[in-house]
Amino acid sequence: MKKIILSIFILHFFIVSALLGQEKKDEVINIFEQPILITSAGQSAEVQIASVLAKRAGLSAALSKAAFANELKGIRTLVIVLGVSLKGLGAAGLDISQETNRVQILVDDAQRKNIPILCLHLGGETRRGQLTDDLINTFLPFSKMAIVVESGNKDGLFTSICKENHIPLIVVERAVDALQPLKKAFK
């Protein structure tokens, strides 16, 4: 009996470890160049978190919450922070369709100029919902890499989009944990 229970728990341990560690295996080093432009898709405050992370990582970064294509001049990486805040949109004087159009134009221009895109989702579970999911579905496929907070990927949305589009996905437990992968991702 003891052997059965022990075997079950060992099996349990391996299965759970494998499941939890699945997305964390991706490690992407030195694929992006500086300077970078950080912008929001959805005007959530996480764009500010990304800016502080970039500062801590010692990256040469400019923050423009509602950036336009002309701000891509001289930029080597575009960082898009995904997450809709109705409050943030209101403060920026934008509605969701205007915001989506703005980001689409920016992404199109970045693609034309061969500027790679790094997508971040740092708001976790509380920064999901239909509007955010629409932006994730629209813009994540354009990215060369994604870093997301684990609780925001509980339903595997990021995992499935990244898998489908062969995008390396780094899953971190908390927003602050994005610092190291961010540092490593840049030359």
Binding site: S44, A45, I49, S85, G88, G123, G124, T126, R127
Partner: peptide, 10 residues
């Protein structure tokens, strides 16, 4: 708390 803290981060 966390969601509001994030919203008011700036």
């Amino acid at each position: 708390f966390s969601a509001i803290n994030k919203d008011e981060y700036e």
